[in-house]
Amino acid sequence: MEIDFNFITEIIPTYVQGTIMTLNLAVISILLSIIIGLLIEAARYFNLKILTAISKAYIEFSRNTPLLIQVFFLFYGLTKFGIKLSGFTCGVIGLAFLGGAYMAESFRGGVEAVSKSQIESGQALGLSKMQILTDIVLPISFSISIPAVVANCIFLVKETSIIASIAVAELMFVTKDVIGMYYKTNEALILVVLFYLIILLPISIVSRIIERRLRYGEFGR
């Protein structure tokens, strides 16, 4: 298998542009999905029955339908109702819609891991339910949820490849474009793997450091 390194050098700027688009999609959708997850968990915590029922339906629907179908509906289906969104906007909405469901489940696991004695201690101190949530439940549950949240973040970064299907020039779209124009399949695939690693490896390493420090802090090490 021959690799054209000169071609790789020439095409790197195109992949840099695709990486920037991938990061834009990922960062915005991850932030939105975390917000959605926190709002859903807050509705559960305060036992808002109607919102909790809606959130359960949303989680089941989101996790049990393919992201590709969701994105196609946003990009193609909404035009039937006179709503036309850009590919980037559809990608962000689709990723946040999917990610919010996974983040909500991650936070739920963290909240359920908070011991009742800690909550009861807050009640004994006269803290309100909101104060217990913000000062006790969320900090503890978030530290417990870090591994799951990071896994969801990595999952969403990889899922940005689906957005290539609606002509958003992220990494996978760039790869398909390069292969179609230059027939340099090996070089294109090598570059896309390398650039995904450049994005994902730092996230994984930083998350392990944060998780280790939080765990040591919890046990007083």
Results as ranks from 00 to 15, higher is better:
Ser115Tyr: 03
Ala148His: 06
Tyr76Lys: 02
Leu191Tyr: 06
Leu98Cys: 05
Ile198Pro: 03
Leu74Met: 02
Ser117Asp: 12
Ser145Pro: 09
Cys90Glu: 10
Ala151Trp: 03
Phe155Lys: 14
Glu211Gly: 00
Cys153Met: 15
Ile162Pro: 05
Lys116Met: 09
Ile154Asn: 04
Ile210His: 00
Val92Ile: 13
Gly110Thr: 02
Ala188Phe: 01
Gly180Lys: 13
Ser143Gln: 15
Cys153Pro: 01
Lys84Val: 08
Val174His: 05
Gly87Pro: 03
Glu170Arg: 14
Ile119Met: 14
Ala113Asn: 05
Leu194Tyr: 02
Ser207Pro: 05
Val150Glu: 07
Ser161Thr: 12
Gly94Thr: 07
Phe73Lys: 05
Phe81Cys: 04
Val149Met: 14
Asn152Trp: 08
Asp135Gln: 15
Leu138Pro: 00
Gly99Cys: 10
Ser117Leu: 00
Thr79Ala: 08
Gln118Ile: 08
Tyr102Met: 13
Tyr196Cys: 02
Met130Thr: 15
Lys176Asn: 15
Thr175Gln: 12
Ser86Phe: 07
Gly100Pro: 13
Leu191Ala: 07
Leu197Gln: 09
Ala148Gln: 13
Thr134Phe: 08
Ser161Met: 00
Val168Leu: 11
Phe97Asp: 10
Leu189Met: 13
Gly77Phe: 01
Ala167Glu: 10
Val206Ile: 14
Tyr102Ile: 12
Gly91Val: 03
Ala148Thr: 12
Ile119Glu: 14
Phe75Ala: 09
Ala169Gln: 05
Ile132Asp: 06
Thr160Leu: 08
Leu171Phe: 12
Gly87Glu: 04
Leu85Thr: 09
Tyr182Gly: 00
Tyr76Trp: 06
Met103Asn: 12
Ser86Gly: 13
Val174Lys: 12
Ala96Val: 07
Phe97Glu: 09
Leu171Gln: 13
Ile154Glu: 01
Val206Thr: 11
Glu187Ile: 07
Ala96Met: 10
Phe155Ser: 13
Gln131Thr: 01
Tyr102Lys: 10
Ala148Lys: 11
Val206Ser: 10
Leu197Asp: 00
Ile93Phe: 03
Tyr196Ile: 06
Ile163Cys: 09
Gly110Cys: 02
Ala164Gly: 12
Leu127Val: 06
Gly99Met: 07
Thr160Ile: 06
Ile209Ala: 09
Lys129Phe: 08
Tyr182Arg: 04
Leu200Met: 09
Gly126His: 10
Thr79Cys: 03
Leu156Phe: 01
Leu85His: 11
Pro147Glu: 04
Phe142Ala: 15
Asp135Trp: 06
Ser207Cys: 00
Phe155Cys: 11
Val193Phe: 10
Gly87Phe: 00
Leu133Met: 13
Phe107Ala: 04
Glu112Asp: 13
Leu197Met: 15
Gly87Ala: 02
Ser145Gly: 08
Ile190Trp: 02
Glu112Met: 14
Met130Asn: 14
Gln131Glu: 15
Thr185Lys: 14
Lys158Ile: 04
Ser204Ile: 01
Met181Lys: 15
Leu127Arg: 07
Ile205Arg: 06
Val168Asp: 11
Glu105Lys: 08
Ile205Tyr: 08
Glu105Arg: 05
Lys129Met: 13
Arg108Pro: 05
Lys129Trp: 10
Gly126Val: 09
Ala188Pro: 05
Ser165Trp: 00
Ala101Glu: 12
